[in-house]
């Protein structure tokens, strides 16, 4: 980090999460029952965690500007419905995949456009979007499929390729692309600038509204890829129940990764590590045989624990620096 671009706070959060993930992996290895294979855990990890990480990358940029997108789960539902309908119409796989990505991308960009032009807070627009988009998906399915019974059945294996065979590869490629973009592009720094101080941006001659919109446009691309992997992993796409609560899972990973919920600070690497941490926690609890009734509560407690410990460490270090 020769350019001093990661704050000490973020650097420390990355280290804490890295250590946490290692501890969890070791714990999983030790608690695994006879017959389970550790390599299986690792290979399964990619496809399972890919949607959260990918959507999280988009969300990171949006939260860094001081905005938020609560409608991402519903956007995935619309993308999935479009995908399902086209599969039902017997389109070949590639155009179906493209349509899925494009749908999610354009809806996210649409969020950005609405926030920009209606001059309303992102949290309100996307809260409305949360209901609106899921509703649109249901209407679309109902209109496009005769005797729509509530779910779209994707049977042929070729339609499952991105989610099942290539998920890990897509995830890795996107992550590499994201890191390069984060490192070498000026736009992510503008997002952070906007999240730090909208006034400073305005006085410096930047247009805060365009910067915020760009975060939604870039975020939409990540969300599109996330949606593709999400919907090609399942056989039955049910617009009414698909991806319920997914946005909270994603926001949780982003915040755990050190992104400031009020904007101005955050990193892609943190989000990826945060998502992994939540995933490995869930895995470990399953292997350790912890009752599902307890798992949610333990996850919540862990989030508070990690962030609490990190903040305490940070405060101590700051104090030491001031003494020195």
């Amino acid at each position: 980090m020769t350019h001093g671009r990661l704050s000490p706070f973020l650097r420390q959060r990355l280290l804490v999460l890295l250590a946490g993930n290692l501890v969890l992996l070791i714990a999983i290895a030790f608690t695994m029952k006879q017959g389970g294979s550790f390599t299986d855990v690792l290979t399964r990890c990619g496809p399972n965690v890919a949607p959260v990480i990918l959507a999280g990358l988009g969300m990171t940029g949006i939260i860094c500007t001081g905005a938020i997108d609560l409608s991402i789960a519903s956007i995935i539902v619309v993308a999935g419905t479009v995908f399902g309908v086209l599969v039902d119409r017997q389109w070949p796989p590639l155009p179906c995949f493209a349509a899925c990505v494009a749908t999610a991308w354009s809806l996210s960009a649409c969020n950005g456009l609405l926030i920009r032009n209606l001059k309303m807070p992102a949290i309100i627009i996307t809260l409305a979007g949360l209901a609106l988009y899921r509703g649109l998906a249901l209407i679309l399915a109902d209109l496009a499929i005769p005797n729509f019974g509530g779910s779209l059945n994707i049977q042929h294996e070729s339609y499952h390729a991105p989610g099942k065979q290539f998920a890990s590869a897509i995830l890795l490629a996107t992550l590499v692309g994201a890191f390069v973009w984060e490192w070498f592009a000026s736009t992510p720094r503008r997002w952070l600038a906007l999240g730090s101080s909208e006034e400073a941006c305005r006085l410096a001659g930047l247009d805060p509204r365009s910067i915020r919109q760009s975060a939604f446009v870039v975020g939409g691309l990540f969300l599109g890829i996330a949606a593709l992997i999400y919907v090609t992993q399942i056989q039955f796409i049910e617009p009414a129940r698909l991806a319920l609560g997914f946005e909270l899972q994603v926001i949780g990973a982003v915040i755990l990764g050190g992104t400031n919920i009020f904007g101005g600070e955050g990193s892609y690497a943190g989000t990826a590590l945060g998502a992994l941490f939540l995933y490995f926690t869930a895995q470990w609890m399953t292997y350790a045989g912890i009752s599902p009734y307890f798992q949610e509560a333990i996850t919540g407690a862990l989030i508070i624990g990690v962030i609490g410990m990190d903040c305490a460490l940070h405060r101590n270090r700051k104090r030491l620096e001031e003494l020195a």
Binding site: T2, R5, L192, A193, S196, S197, C201, A204, N260
Partner: peptide, 28 residues
């Protein structure tokens, strides 16, 4: 008005075009 989380250099050059490599990346 300033962006507290960014570096001195970024604050100094905020609002100006940043220097870039030939292939388009920011030349930090």
């Amino acid at each position: 008005a300033y962006c507290g989380h960014l570096t001195v250099a970024e604050n100094l050059l905020l609002g100006e075009p940043w220097p870039r490599h030939r292939w388009g990346g920011v030349d930090w």
